[in-house]
Amino acid sequence: MLKHIRKALAISALSLAVSTAAFAQDKPKVAFVPQLIGIPYFNAMEAGGNRAAKELGVDFIYSGPVDTNPVDQLQIVQNLIDQGVNAISVSVLDASSIAPVVEAAKAKGIKLFTSDSDAPDSGRAVYVAQATDEGLGNTIIDELVKRVGEDAKIGIVSGEATASNLNAWIGFMQKQAAAKYPKLKLLEPQYAGGTAERAAQISGDLMAANPDIKAIIAVASTTCPGVAQAIETAGKIGSVIGAGYCSPNTARSYLKSGAFGFTVLWDPAQLGYLTVWAGKQLIDGKAFEAENKVPGFDNPVTYDATKGILLLGPPAVFTAENVDKFDF
């Protein structure tokens, strides 16, 4: 027994020496915590973050929950704080849950900020926004009206009922419809959680229950394939058009088949890049200016000092014609 212990101790001492050598580099660390790992959207953000880390000379940590559970996300953020990572960005699953960790981060002098999904009143350092919620909500309604006219019934299929970014977009869609297109009828949003199957089922039911439905909006990127599949299965290509916030790679085949008319999004890789850049600025103690020059960005990035929002740019509309120019 004693011999075993001695052996174990020797091995641990050795690996300790090796690991300390490996960890000896002293670059500032920037972390990003997505809402969910293993989906193309956040993978693209990770790729952008890695590129930024290499170019800006920081270490990038990417870690997130396996399902959209706010407590799991909180635990990951708390552990990054305990590790002493210099700057932590979070795509917030639930705005109210982030408050305790913001306090913990402040106590340790760690810059905690949000990216992709915000928690406005939490005391975060900055919010790196992909596009304004208003811009996204309005764009999808405006583009839809161009295609189906003002007098139409439109279904909404969202992801988690608690995701604050998705709910904000839906809110602006409803506002835009009420203000600009009074004849437009938006159905109550349906929530599919994180799976495409459930989204397909919900969309199928929506079309069966509302034969006069003209369009379905897939709000979460995970619901896009489900909505498109349901339109294809129901043989309603041409009479019902899908639209949503999903990446060109997700929507490419549906855009070409006609099940989807268009999708609205931004480039998540650029967003990941900007997130890490913002983390580096915060660590260096540099203030954001009204217009910031970021390496690799064609247009300067605007900063709204009153709301604390760093904005990637206006949303992009992808259609069958331009989708092949993008790869994410």
Binding site: N69, P70, V71, S96, A99, P100, T162
Partner: peptide, 13 residues
């Protein structure tokens, strides 16, 4: 008491 809000999916999993 910990999170400061009641969340309808707090018991998930």
């Amino acid at each position: 008491a910990w999170l400061g809000s009641g969340r309808p999916n707090i018991g998930q999993n």
